[in-house]
Amino acid sequence: MPHDHHDHSHDTDGLSPSGHPYRPDQDHKLTRWQAMEIAMRELLVEKGIVTAAEITETVEQMDRRSPADGAKVVARAWVDPSFKARLLENGTEAIRELGIEPGVLKLIAVENTARTHNVVVCTLCSCYPRNLLGLPPDWYKQRAYRSRVVKTPRKVLAEFGLELPESTQVRVHDSTADMRYLVVPARPEGTEGLDEAALAELVSRDAMIGVATARHP
């Protein structure tokens, strides 16, 4: 699981707290596109369209969002069958119960079981439940994933390490319009004694996209 975000004890040079390399930024030569961002931002602030504080707050909000929010939703669904029913019925309303403000997000939650495996893609761009999971991984936005998962999902899932038996039906969800999708992975066996917080630790971002299962404790 090289792409999960549970180990925050990195002290490796050149890697971020989540263990990924930083993009060139402050210390590299200014690019045309960075100059454009600075110019646009300053013009928008001077014209009173946005305030500097709003920009800072929006960036900070982006940094606060992470798959941990989605994992909380999944863990609650595992321990509370009535919540799970409400989540599957109307995901947008259900996440409010956990204090997660959906904003523009319109959420459909889909449940993985022994017989059904769900996986999410956006073939036309890269729609993703950002308000619940943070920003999408790079591979989610790439041509390879977007092209292939709607035609050969089993092969793609196998490349992610997930071999599904023929008896499991695959359901691919293409986010073509206004809805965003959360996969509720199946609860692993042997987790009866765990509390909600410990259960949430088992739920990775990739499991909520549908390219992985929940971890075993």
Binding site: P21, Y22, D25, E37, D138
Partner: peptide, 12 residues
């Protein structure tokens, strides 16, 4: 093939 490398976003 799907390339799985990831990076964090820069401030800009």
């Amino acid at each position: 093939e799907i390339k799985r490398e990831e990076h964090d976003f820069a401030l800009w």
